[in-house]
């Protein structure tokens, strides 16, 4: 006898209908083949989603332990850590920060004055400065900033660049690095910042590079490397790409759209060609 394939099996035995295509999970981290209770999400994947969302939310609201980070940077011997600065953007707290991106892009007055005073004593200028900002995920900075900078130093130490004192910025957005960089008188500034947390990546760190940083630069004048974390772009690859961009930027004296195209081209050469337009759904 043919049974109705649309009729659920004995719901007392199992109220969840599994999907017989779980093998497809090998191809993607997307939440596929979750099964269903009726047509709804079964309890287990429903709660797994809630946990991921909770972790991402907590990452957004986690406060950056700037003093602890400063100590770690010193312990790791990162250049510029010894005389590093802890700064605060013009956004007083997280709720303000989330609603006023313009304030997160500027230093608070007290921090600005402090940095001016610190740099007034001499007329030192630098080739490169690193600004570490919490952004939307202090967790990303806590997990990735020190080990990434340590990995990067192995690559760039031999370049002989004069490195500015490190700056750590609370409630900072990417563009705050331009103000810090201009006050520190550095030709290149690299901002390490916590990116908007995703459900599967609450601790992604972004890297933004500006040549001759100054207040009011547009995003098109910057280069970006995204998703730096052990589960995303590994430190070694991110350090390779950043070193490439920094070296190019020094030579060509620019960052932004013109630089981006060529670095992207370079990276394509490093990775095997993607399978064009065929998948298991349409074999040749």
């Amino acid at each position: 006898m043919m049974s109705d394939p649309f009729c659920e099996k004995d719901p007392l035995a199992s109220p969840v209908t599994d999907n017989p295509w779980q093998t497809l999970r090998r191809f993607t981290s997307a939440r596929i083949a979750l099964g269903r209770a009726g047509v709804s999400l079964p309890t287990q994947p429903q709660l797994a989603f809630q946990l991921a969302h909770a972790q991402a939310r907590d990452a957004v609201h986690l406060a950056l332990d700037a003093e602890g980070l400063q100590q770690q940077l010193r312990d790791a011997g990162i250049p510029g850590a010894a005389d590093s600065h802890i700064l605060h953007s013009a956004a007083a707290d997280r709720l303000t920060y989330l609603q006023r991106p313009d304030w997160g892009r500027r230093l608070g007055e007290a921090s600005r004055q402090a940095l001016l005073a610190a740099t007034a004593a001499d007329d030192a200028a630098y080739d490169i400065g690193f600004v570490i900002a919490d952004g939307l995920s202090a967790l990303a900075i806590a997990n990735n900033a020190v080990p990434f900078l340590a990995t990067l130093q192995q690559r760039i130490a031999a370049r002989g660049w004069r490195q500015a004192p490190l700056a750590i910025v609370r409630q900072g957005r990417v563009a705050v690095g331009d103000e810090v960089g201009s006050l520190l008188r550095t030709r290149l500034v690299v901002v390490l910042i916590g990116e908007r947390p995703g459900l599967s990546s609450p601790d992604s760190m972004g890297l933004y590079i500006s040549w001759m940083p100054r207040v009011g630069m547009s995003d098109a004048e910057r280069n970006c490397i995204s998703n730096v974390r052990p589960g995303g772009m590994r430190y070694e690859e991110a350090a390779y790409r950043l070193d490439y961009l920094l070296t190019e930027a020094q030579q060509r004296q620019l960052t932004g759209v013109q630089l981006k195209d060529e670095s992207a081209h370079q990276v394509v050469l490093d990775t095997p060609a993607a399978p064009a337009s065929l998948s298991f759904l349409t074999p040749p």
């Binding site: 497809l24 993607t28 998948s279 759904l281």
Partner: peptide, 16 residues
């Protein structure tokens, strides 16, 4: 969507 545009990764979500 797939983070690296992998054809089978896309096809897996599409079939799902």
């Amino acid at each position: 969507n797939h983070p690296t545009d992998d054809a089978s990764g896309i096809a897996a979500s599409l079939l799902d």
